[in-house]
Simulated assay, not measured.
Amino acid sequence: MIDFYFWNYTRVVFGLEAEKELESHLELLGDKVLLHYGGGSIKQIGLYDTVIKTLKKAGVSFVELGGVKPNPRLSLVYEGIELCRKEGVTGILAVGGGSVIDSAKAIAAGVPYDGDVWDFYTTDKNPDKALPIGVMLTLPAAGSETSTGSVITKEEGELKRDTGSPILRPQFAILNPKWTLSLPWYQTACGISDMFAHIMERYFTTVEHVELTDRMAEGAMKTIIHQAYRLKENPDNLDARSEIMWAGTVAHNDILHTGRIGDWATHMIEHELSGIYDIAHGAGLSIVFPAWQKYMLDKHPQKIAQFAHRVFDIDYYQDDIKETARMGIKRLEEFYRDMELPVRLKDAGIGTDRIREMAKKATRDDKIKLGNFHKLDSKAIEEILHLAAE
């Protein structure tokens, strides 16, 4: 285990009437709020009216910016920064899923910054100031409600890039599982894939003596699998939705990252997929992660075998660790298929013609290598994407 410093200051309010706590937390956002959201879903479930009523009751002025899309766009971030500066906004209330929250974080970092907010996503610069953010989560997936990270897509060049800073953690996050009842199954499944991947990115580490966080991660993954099947059988199962919603937060609030070094190569490779083809992040991860594990089979079979045994209850063959690992990868693919997610590029209508381009973009033309479990250059990424095509 390596030394670590853990501090997650986001206040989490979880419950079937959690929205009643919004008014008591609005003071953390100041006296004028940007209400940031996506399409019409929050209006369809009545959450929009609840938020507006609460803001007015609390005497908080607000301006609105909707229109956030999956794989949130830089152009809308620029619009939000300009609006906040013009209106003297003091804080942002993000109502929606990870895309809305990531967009809100980008706006929050961009308002006090003299340069282009895209600098934070493409250079070593990190924001040292940002507007405070509050969250009302409607889609459990990205874990952005308590994380330091934000991912934004720049339309020009089809670039999807991330940044992270402790200053971008939301001040509060309000979670009501009832808000997720109207989600289509595919969105729910993509969210499950996203949170599962967040745990695997941390789980596959070369740091030794991390049994506590290994076991915590394994327990979280087993819970996600169990509850995912329950939810698929009955999408109205509020208990299952509650478990999944909390799992998405725990997967990315850094508690499972303590004392270890995560990998994150799979996320970076997937960003090229969704940056170019605009597929759901969770769908891209269900394609890339098994291929990444297959590539790692000859390099780190022990950890993949442990994953297979402890998460999917596969018998551990001491004399053939690789076979145990292979069976784990197969079971992971079966889980994704059961969730009606793609596991091959062709399943998402993606060909192999731009694999080299994606590998080069991911490594900045081989100026960097991805991952920590095993460093990946562009040639390795090409191999992984070809494995995802087989």
Rank of each mutant, 00 (worst) to 15 (best):
F6D: 00
Y9T: 09
V12W: 10
V12C: 08
F14H: 11
L16T: 14
L22Y: 01
S24W: 02
L28H: 12
L29T: 04
L29K: 10
D31K: 15
K32L: 06
V33S: 03
H36S: 12
H36T: 06
Y37Q: 05
S41Y: 13
Q44W: 03
I45S: 07
Y48I: 07
D49P: 03
V51K: 01
I52D: 00
I52V: 13
K53L: 01
L55P: 05
V60L: 04
F62C: 02
F62D: 00
G67C: 08
N71F: 01
P72S: 10
L74E: 01
E79T: 09
R85H: 07
K86P: 02
L93M: 08
V95F: 08
S99E: 01
A108H: 04
A109G: 08
P112I: 09
Y113F: 14
D116I: 10
F120M: 10
Y121F: 15
T122A: 12
T123Y: 07
D128Q: 14
L131I: 12
I133E: 05
L137W: 04
L139R: 02
A141K: 05
A141Y: 08
A142H: 13
S147A: 14
T153V: 14
K154P: 02
E156S: 15
E156G: 13
E156Q: 15
R161V: 13
D162T: 14
S165D: 06
P166Y: 12
R169C: 03
Q171P: 07
F172I: 09
F172A: 09
F172R: 03
A173P: 09
L175G: 01
N176K: 10
P177C: 07
T180N: 10
L181N: 05
L181I: 14
S182W: 11
A189F: 09
M195R: 15
M200T: 15
E201R: 06
Y203P: 10
E211N: 13
T213D: 05
G219N: 12
M221D: 10
M221H: 11
K222L: 11
K222S: 13
I224P: 07
H226R: 15
R230V: 13
L231I: 11
L231M: 13
K232S: 10
E233P: 07
P235L: 03
P235A: 06
N237A: 07
R241N: 04
R241W: 11
S242Q: 06
E243L: 05
E243C: 03
M245N: 08
W246Q: 12
G248Y: 05
L256D: 00
L256Q: 07
L256S: 02
R260Y: 03
A265P: 02
H267K: 12
M268C: 02
E270L: 11
D278V: 11
G282Y: 01
G282L: 07
A283T: 01
S286I: 03
V288C: 05
Q293C: 13
M296I: 01
L297G: 00
K303A: 00
Q306P: 00
A308N: 06
D313N: 14
Y316H: 13
Y316N: 05
Y317S: 06
Q318P: 13
Q318L: 09
I321W: 01
E323M: 07
K330S: 12
R331F: 03
L332G: 08
E334Q: 15
E334N: 12
P342S: 10
K346D: 01
K346A: 11
A348D: 08
G349I: 07
G351F: 09
R354L: 14
R354D: 13
A362V: 10
R364L: 15
K367V: 02
G371A: 09
F373T: 04
S378T: 06
K379W: 08
E383L: 08
L385P: 00
